[in-house]
Nucleic acid binder design. Sequence first.
DNA 1: CCTGCTCCGTACGGTACCGTACCGACAGAG
DNA 2: CTCTGTCGGTACGGTACCGTACGGAGCAGG
Lengths: 240, 240
Amino acid sequence: MAPADRPDRVPRTGNRILDALPPADFARLRSEMDEVSLPVHQVVFDAQETITSVLFPLSGVISLVTPMEDGNIVEVTTVGNEGMVGVPVFLGARSTTVRAISQVSGRALRQPVDAFLRAIDDHSQLRAVVQRYTQALFTQISQSAGCNRLHSNEERLARWLLMSHDRVGADRFPITQEFLSQMLGVRRATVTVSAGILQRAGFISYARGQVTIVDRKGLEGASCECYRIMQTELVRLLSY
Amino acid sequence: MAPADRPDRVPRTGNRILDALPPADFARLRSEMDEVSLPVHQVVFDAQETITSVLFPLSGVISLVTPMEDGNIVEVTTVGNEGMVGVPVFLGARSTTVRAISQVSGRALRQPVDAFLRAIDDHSQLRAVVQRYTQALFTQISQSAGCNRLHSNEERLARWLLMSHDRVGADRFPITQEFLSQMLGVRRATVTVSAGILQRAGFISYARGQVTIVDRKGLEGASCECYRIMQTELVRLLSY
DNA sequence: CCTGCTCCGTACGGTACCGTACCGACAGAG
DNA sequence: CTCTGTCGGTACGGTACCGTACGGAGCAGG
């Protein structure tokens, strides 16, 4: 199953929630999970749909978006290997008003809802970690709500790139301006302009659906404070 | 203490979370609470500040806002007697990045953080209700995040008035355009224009810091879908 | 090599806001 | 009854977007 050379040493999965658990706890959980791959643009669950399993991403980026009646969507937060998808289940719901969509392809450990809820009951450590991750999610969404209203497209684009950069763990990753525009809730043409500014400033480079983060510090300077606030709070809450 | 004519019958407080509890549970909780009044514009707790007690509003409206570095703020959600202030405590945190500020004066039951956490441990019913309220809050904030990006000032103003109308339980309540502008993250002058449109349409009337909801149905038509989505989800999650 | 497709750059008129500012109307204090 | 502060209406230039649209550049398949 996994390359553990000692029986009581569970190898890190790469998911920070699962990796925070004691080895024995994780072993029991792992037996109820299967590893799945998430192709780009896959809808993990849609608004109003019954959630049947939760996901612990190992790689890639999943976006939670709020879909509107006219078909427009806006990202409210981003999930990677620092978190999980399916927090509403933890909060006693089986559906939600947001859509979870894979934005950068990756892999994840999937656990059926029933098993997850049993695990939450049985493992106080898991409960505690998920609780604090839920709080981090709160911070991120609240900050997004303000950011969406007050900050410029360019600042928000920089923030999005930084958050994704953290989660993919590589300087280069695939993302088209078309999908970026949906995440940011603007026209594609507006993304082109903002991305062009960041590119000419030497912070990123960009070609045919592939971004490269060239100057991370520069990008942080171009972003609004929201990136820093979300990141700081995430670190604070998940430093067990 | 309270005008209960039978010893085992606890009178409704008016707060929907507390009212969902079995009488015996509530009685024990109540002994650890004190009733406070919340004058308008009082900061219940500020961003980064240690939260020492949670509040269960009986009347009035409290706004959760995201404060930005430049001093601007934007409302992310509204809390009234359907909920509580201090959900981060439930999620294992003692502080948050949002500010809670009383927007329409009212009264609330206040419980120290320690007592609240003991109560959460001891009373599964309270835990379940707060959990589901937390999920409702998630929905509201997520919807706000999208709404703030995609919908016009006029639609968002109508939504804000409807949400407050539900919570104050009166057709007339005090709110200045100045504070509305802060909630909506726009200039006061923009509120004047939008409010003027709603007033000329006969949906509201407005004078010197007092709004009156004249035609609620009309206002619902002027609002974006976000009001309905938040309201529906709240009812669904809190119908125990 | 051509075709078709995806992705990105650019343009142009329109609009919903912005920052700033001024002024009038009303209410409460004295 | 005046004074003073709060509240709301309006204006004006500026700007960051919008909707729409066209075209070019690269890549993949036939």
